[in-house]
Amino acid sequence: MPAISGPDHLRAHLPVSRETLDRLQIYVDLLRRWQRAVNLVGPSTIEEVWTRHILDSAQLLAYIPQQAKSLLDIGTGAGLPGLILAIMGVEQVHLMESDAKKVTFLREAARLTKTNVTLHHGRIETLEPFPVDVVTARALASVEGLLDYTRPYRQADSVCLFLKGGGVEQELRQAATRWKMTVNQFPSATADEGVILKLEAIRDVG
Results as ranks from 00 to 15, higher is better:
51 T>M: 10
42 G>W: 02
39 N>Q: 09
32 R>S: 09
139 A>Y: 07
87 I>H: 15
50 W>G: 15
71 L>W: 03
98 S>K: 12
32 R>V: 00
135 V>Y: 02
58 A>F: 10
92 Q>V: 05
77 G>F: 08
21 L>V: 06
96 M>W: 10
78 A>M: 12
118 T>C: 15
139 A>G: 00
20 T>P: 00
53 H>E: 02
72 L>N: 14
133 D>H: 07
130 F>W: 01
56 D>E: 10
69 K>V: 15
126 T>V: 09
130 F>A: 03
52 R>F: 15
75 G>R: 10
33 R>D: 09
76 T>E: 04
51 T>Q: 01
89 G>A: 02
113 T>E: 04
35 Q>K: 03
76 T>F: 08
100 A>I: 13
109 A>Q: 03
101 K>T: 14
48 E>A: 15
58 A>R: 01
116 N>L: 05
28 V>I: 04
48 E>F: 15
47 E>W: 09
47 E>F: 08
43 P>W: 12
96 M>H: 13
86 A>G: 14
116 N>I: 07
135 V>M: 08
73 D>E: 08
54 I>G: 00
61 L>N: 05
23 R>Y: 08
102 K>W: 11
50 W>D: 06
110 A>N: 06
51 T>F: 09
72 L>R: 10
40 L>Y: 11
37 A>I: 05
99 D>Y: 07
128 E>T: 03
86 A>S: 11
77 G>S: 03
136 T>M: 02
33 R>G: 07
48 E>T: 12
127 L>C: 07
41 V>P: 00
129 P>S: 14
137 A>W: 00
113 T>A: 03
109 A>S: 08
29 D>W: 06
74 I>Q: 06
111 R>G: 11
36 R>C: 09
93 V>T: 06
34 W>L: 09
89 G>H: 04
94 H>I: 03
94 H>T: 10
52 R>H: 12
19 E>T: 11
119 L>Y: 13
120 H>S: 06
50 W>K: 02
18 R>I: 07
